[in-house]
Design a protein around this nucleic acid. Sequence first.
DNA 1: CTGAAAGCGCTAACAG
DNA 2: CTGTTAGCGCTTTCAG
Lengths: 339, 339
Amino acid sequence: MTTTLKDISKEAGVDVATVSRALNGSYGVHKATRERVLAVAKRLNYRANLTARELAVGKSHTLGLLVPDIGNPFVTEVVRGAEDAAYAAGYHILLCNSYLDSAREVQYMRSLLDKRVEGILMHSVQTLSNTEVEELSNSEIPVVLLCRSPSASNFSGVCVNHFEGGVLAGEHLMELGHRKVAFLSGPRDHGNFIEQGKGFIKAVTSVKDSAPPVVLNGPPSFDGGYQLAKKLLEQNHGVTAIFAANDVSAFGIGRAIFEAGLSIPDDISLIGFNNVELANVVRPPLTTIHQPKYEMGQAAVEILLGLAKSGRLGVPEQREFGVRLVKRSSTSAPPKKSR
Amino acid sequence: MTTTLKDISKEAGVDVATVSRALNGSYGVHKATRERVLAVAKRLNYRANLTARELAVGKSHTLGLLVPDIGNPFVTEVVRGAEDAAYAAGYHILLCNSYLDSAREVQYMRSLLDKRVEGILMHSVQTLSNTEVEELSNSEIPVVLLCRSPSASNFSGVCVNHFEGGVLAGEHLMELGHRKVAFLSGPRDHGNFIEQGKGFIKAVTSVKDSAPPVVLNGPPSFDGGYQLAKKLLEQNHGVTAIFAANDVSAFGIGRAIFEAGLSIPDDISLIGFNNVELANVVRPPLTTIHQPKYEMGQAAVEILLGLAKSGRLGVPEQREFGVRLVKRSSTSAPPKKSR
DNA sequence: CTGAAAGCGCTAACAG
DNA sequence: CTGTTAGCGCTTTCAG
């Protein structure tokens, strides 16, 4: 049987309240009493029951993390940051993978609420219906959205300026001398990719003799990038550089380029987005736009904890992080002879 | 304010017990009553408080997952399997990254216990001290260890036969005609790598004219593999094939080979272990030994849930999965001219 | 089918 | 410094 405060109280001959005090706060308990209690507790293999404490105190010391898939290297980094911040603050994290299945997302969201988590960190959740948004709002627990355009709602959010990232990528390619480039984007209706594209196009078209980028849309995955790149290569636009929706799709693009018998960056330059760990591991190391993922995860938890403490849910907090260009070996000047 | 059963009971003019019954079990509540209760609940935005329920029922419907780092691609797959199985069973998962920091491991282990999780899934935890093992045993909650030699303890476990994996790798290289090979292993005292090495050596030395493998030890990471391979290449044993401790270290080895101006598999064949997602993404695609990671994660929570239900903690369950060779492009016959 | 009552294990005033 | 008294919100006998 698991031993409780009551068991200890009997054994030690003091009230359970005293036992509780002896075990937790160090205030107002006679040293001798405390020691006796501690001894008994140890002898009886006492383990605090946090469930009971949570109920009594009304705080779960737990956060919910709702993401599409921890296997996604971007998510992984964010989760690391979030987990570290939570651990440092004495909080636990409930992991929920949705695989972008909206039924699963909703179910997880509800059970997190029922479990009385003190905050929810969500990453790229499918569109929440109004009902769900309302449920979340009614719940009075803080929510922070990752990588969502600030406009989206009255939830808090931490993100990066995707437009700026697009600009950086475009400028980099222009500086290298490319004049015919492509943006292999994600889904046509996804805000972040749209912003990214806008920035890229702006940077590219602001150079006199540069053609407007070829833009293709598809899933921002390895295979999505692979397919898109194959299509692009077939269409034969004579593109000398490609900006990918993200690093993972860039890896797929790289594969397609390789299979076409071309080489990076000699024939085609390639630039990604996110700067996932792998970007520096693949060959050639991928030039990309860095997003401070770990810090974003940390920040998200900080915001959550702050809101949970203050209870000022009315005033959501938005935090935007900067991006920067990470030059590696997948980009260079365009080949001399045109293809 | 958050509404409780009591609020509903007042509004609906029935006892809280009835409300509870109406909301949960469908047994024994008049239809009209139930509907009235449900209506009131909805109107008041009622949310069940699982913390309270857990306390009353004595079950948390939560599992703890203690791993070194979800960023590790092997762990990622296991976690996916575990999470899916947990979700399917209506269980939640508490994520704990230890980064192999044993203080953090212990602290997490204790708080999981205090939180009354119904089971703990641990992966490659630093050596637990006797105290901790005892704490775990006393807790009477099931534990399953991943990838630990079955001998280790009286906890349950799911693993793969590393010896067998080593044999497969060795045989494959022998069949291709290699006669001078190396095993770039992990830490010298780690059971799995030892087994893996034994199997490999057995397969290699059972071929007449084959030299016993060169064995080097180091951290089984990207950089670890990189360093080890550099060292191996410098020592210039004339090795024509390398068996890596795992895929990630194989990637590092690949980098070193590349930097040495050699090519895979033309100059040196390379074979990994685990078959992580990336193995098929890198260039050239990595030949490796497959471990059913997802299934292992699933199996682990099945075992946990089974033990939790039966309460038969005395009889830990061991499940061993099979390995298999996945031939890809990083292995081929040795070069004709010796180097 | 429904109500009353007890209790899960712990905390938190409030007295003393 | 310590005991008493109420709960936290829900489930679960046990009656009726």
